[in-house]
Write a protein that binds this DNA or RNA. Structure first.
Lengths: 214, 214, 214, 214
DNA sequence: GATGAATGAGGCTTCATTCAT
DNA sequence: CATGAATGAAGCCTCATTCAT
């Protein structure tokens, strides 16, 4: 019978680890399959047992970086919370996560951004997914009477603009200590309170009621 | 007889112009010599009369971008001003310049950053040069009694950290309207006043005295 | 000013000549760019000045083979002849041409077929073009009352089936001496007379009236 | 202890079956060992227990296709028949066999031809073998006084030319219904009668005497 | 001075093949 | 016996760079 096949998934992870090291050492620019293979001590051809092509590898590299953020989005969207709280969690939890990563190893963080710049399509998928989830939140918010007089798309776009500094990893590099959970909370409140509410005299309470969850 | 060297210089400038256009149109990623030659209506081979190799071209492209900033640094360092004022000018004039460029054409500004990411050594030269001039300023400041108890390197590093958002072009994209000459002035004052003064009772005046020069 | 650039078109033709030799010598199977380059005494990279990619080269090779046949089709379709005569010319002239080529160098003829088998898309273009012109002829024939009760597509398909041995180059290898202009003429007549005529008692004359043109 | 070699032989046959299926499904072009292994549910490496290399596999695939034809040739050559009858059987039995295969599954038949085109050496072996047996028949015919004034090689070549359409599988695709056992018989008769007889006034009988054997 | 020509090195990818287990 | 692992050679293609003219 067949020998136990070395876990392909394990190999992928190991390669992604090595990828990470390389990116850390030399930046993410022009990382070649040959180079990765050499660093992994295997032949270029063998890489293709683990990743169908370079694009797949990059996707996986990005995927690994984005995975926890996507998990957060899914959790939050599925949670049973009022839309305002949900929206806050939606952004703040990802922000906190990113900030932690940045503090832990700023150089690697930056190198990943470089990599993202070179493989934009991969990043685009994440951004689009984020927009998709955000639009679900917007729908819920509208059901609760918030954001009247806006199309879903307009609302999504508007919100994105307001929280851009908390979503975009590059912003962290320059803002970092200027960013805080509290400020993000205020932005979200501004969105919910400032943009009006349809069928409600008392806009929930008027006061922010933020619960920070890390 | 040899033609005046100005011809070459003119050609270089023209090529850099075209380079700029290309970068503006399609981003700085993967700009190839062949492509540049085509855009310039000349043969790839001819490019090498103007630039020894691609690296030299990139250096020149970055050089052009950095040139006015370097000029500012040199001017300021050579100026006859007290160290506090000098330090302020050192940062604020470059900041204002960059912000103007950014406002004038944000897309091109970003594309240049991309280019910088791909040719880091070139950027590194500028950064190192900046550190060099800054250390001269630090020396002068120390002569005037400021920044006691710090090594030059530590001082340079500390200052850089404090003004990073005013030095790094990428920061502009995210901060822009949050940045101002006034705030930068306050940071500089914080450095000079906050870090103490050795042999001086009257710290120059205690008040910031900023003169904005564009 | 620019030196006279060696005619790219001439280079293409020369390469196609070499291609032809190679195909003759070793069959058309697995002809590689490297091999062609070696045979042409140039670097593989240089091939790409003449052909954008391998596909383009194959296309050109096929194009060269098909060109005279396409010219024939165009001439015939544009000619001022009754549809029956036109249809005959449409097929017979190409057939005669192919037969001549076959007789002149049977081996090369066969090797080209091999090549065609490996690059079917290229052949498909020619076949589709043939169908296109044929459908124009069918329309004219229908205008003249022939081929009633048939859709254009059905007529095209039917005709193709009847003359397949005169169109398909592979058939030549096996049929050759069994094929003749006269027989083809009879097939065409069968199509025109046998498939009926709409508004005509005397089907033109009932007798074939073939004029062979080489 | 070594297992009976039949196991290997069985495996070979099974693999050739699968090969056949694949060829039927997707044409014979670019069939790869990896693909075959996958289809066979075994590892690529394991293929090499059954076939030394790809060439050997192709040889076997062709061998399987040619095997019954070779058997026919051997039977006929070994038979105790007059040369004229023998020659007829030599060709007609193979022709009938091929035609049956073609009718049973035309697509597979064609795909095998493709495969043959890609591995010509394999086909060449069969053709050469056929020539070898044919030359034996020619010798016998000459012993019986037929084919005077011809070298063996010339006779073989001449005969091959006359019966080409009954030997070459590709011909079937285009001729098929135009080919018949009767016509082949007439060709053979033409060879034996038409090319003269040396020491014989009554050329056997002057009439064809064909006995069809499937 | 400027060109077209030409190339070598390197990138991604596939595949027949080998080998330790 | 059969596997998964691994590879080298080859294929197509791009691009910075050089050189004779």
């Amino acid at each position: 019978m067949a020998r136990p096949q070395t876990d392909i998934e394990a190999g992928r992870q190991e390669l992604l680890d090595i990828c990470e090291q390389l990116v850390r050492q030399r930046g993410g620019v022009d990382l070649s399959m040959t180079e990765l293979a050499a660093a992994a001590g295997m032949s270029p051809a063998n890489l293709y047992r683990f990743f169908e092509n370079k694009e797949a590898l990059m996707e996986a590299a990005a995927g690994r970086w984005f995975a926890p953020k996507i998990a957060i989005m899914e959790e939050v969207v599925a949670a049973d919370l009022p839309s305002r709280e949900k929206m806050f969690q939606f952004f703040v939890r990802r922000f906190v996560r990113m900030r932690d990563e940045f503090h832990e190893d700023p150089d690697m963080f930056k190198s990943y951004l470089e990599l993202g710049n070179e493989h934009f399509e991969v990043v685009k998928g994440y951004v689009d997914l984020g927009d998709h989830y955000l639009s679900e939140l917007v729908v819920q918010a509208m059901d609760e009477g918030y954001l009247p007089d806006l199309s879903i798309d307009d609302a999504v776009s508007l919100i994105n603009q307001m929280v851009v500094t908390y979503c975009n990893p590059e912003a962290l590099i320059y803002l970092d200590h200027k960013l805080s959970e509290e400020k993000l909370g205020m932005i979200i409140d501004a969105i919910f309170i400032g943009l009006g509410r349809k069928f409600d005299a008392k806009p929930s309470s008027g006061k922010p009621h933020i619960k920070i969850v890390t």
